[in-house]
């Protein structure tokens, strides 16, 4: 089967310093994939470079077996919530409609079909009653739902989401994850940048462990291991210090025995 996303030797630099180095990857269709790694590991950079939002210096990207340009309408992108100005004078409905512009283009009129897509998407995330509200009057969780509705309105097959769980309430977090699972049930592939190691194994089918290089990629149960996480995070993370303490205790025990 053709993978939903394939990258080969993907390399990105920022001010001449490499931030991503030779990422080789093939994500099979119909999976919910988490990207985890420490701050500055290049998680957002990875999805931005795959989407062509930032330039790469080497390697290639294929989406459903073709270069990104040919399949660009099959890909949806949800940027970080903080990357836009929420005082911008648009309504919730306007933002949801933006999702349809990928296929509609920049010049054709918004028709009934686009409106329906946007309304359905808003309904799915429970934001339809807020359709006429200005986006600045929303809570963080509601803003994230609107972003998700926009992605649903894009009607894509492969999605990239940048930290959709940051700064949202617990109710929104569980609503979002069940939505993502729904999308997977419908055969979509969803790649999510994720921060929280505690929830990662519970949320995702597959994980990418990233720290400038791709340290591991595979089924969650295979790659969510102490050794691989340690390799990814180096040191300095609570979970790792716990591991270290545990290991130290065992050493102490061993030396006493």
């Amino acid at each position: 089967m053709i993978p939903a996303l394939e990258t080969h030797d993907l390399t990105v630099t920022y001010h001449k310093r490499p931030v991503l180095y030779g990422v080789d990857l093939a994500i099979p269709e119909g999976n919910l994939v988490g990207i985890i790694g420490p701050n500055g590991a290049g998680k957002s950079t990875f999805i931005k470079s795959v989407m062509g939002v930032i330039p790469t210096v080497g390697g290639w990207v294929k989406v459903f077996g073709k270069p990104l340009k040919e399949n660009i309408t099959r890909v949806g992108y949800v940027p970080q919530r903080g990357s836009v100005d929420w005082d911008f004078p648009v309504t919730v409905m306007d933002v949801a409609l933006q999702g349809t512009y990928g296929k509609l283009g920049m010049f054709r009129r918004v028709g009934k079909k686009e409106r329906m897509l946007a309304e359905e998407a808003l309904d799915k995330v429970g934001m339809l009653p807020y359709a006429k509200r200005q986006i600045g009057n929303l809570s963080g969780g509601q803003q994230q739902r609107v972003f998700l509705a926009r992605a649903i309105a894009q009607d894509s097959d492969l999605y990239f989401m940048d930290e959709p769980f940051v700064g949202v309430d617990a109710a929104t977090e569980s609503a979002i994850i069940s939505l993502l699972q729904d999308m997977r049930e419908n055969g979509k592939t969803v790649v999510v940048v994720h921060h929280d190691l505690q929830t990662a194994p519970e949320y995702f089918d597959m994980l990418m462990l990233l720290n400038m290089r791709l340290l591991a990629f595979g089924k969650t149960e295979d790659v969510f291991t102490k050794e691989l996480l340690q390799k990814t995070y180096g040191g300095g993370l609570t979970i790792l210090s716990e591991i270290a303490t545990a290991a130290a205790k065992e050493n102490v025990k061993a030396s006493h025995d």
């Binding site: 062509g52 939002v53 340009k69 836009v84 911008f88 933002v95 512009y101 920049m106």
Partner: peptide, 20 residues
């Protein structure tokens, strides 16, 4: 003529870029 392009890129440059 370019209203949508201007609006979209002013609001969300990332999404605009992801549209190619």
């Amino acid at each position: 003529v370019f209203y949508r392009l201007l609006m979209l890129s002013s609001f969300d440059a990332g999404l605009t870029a992801s549209f190619g």
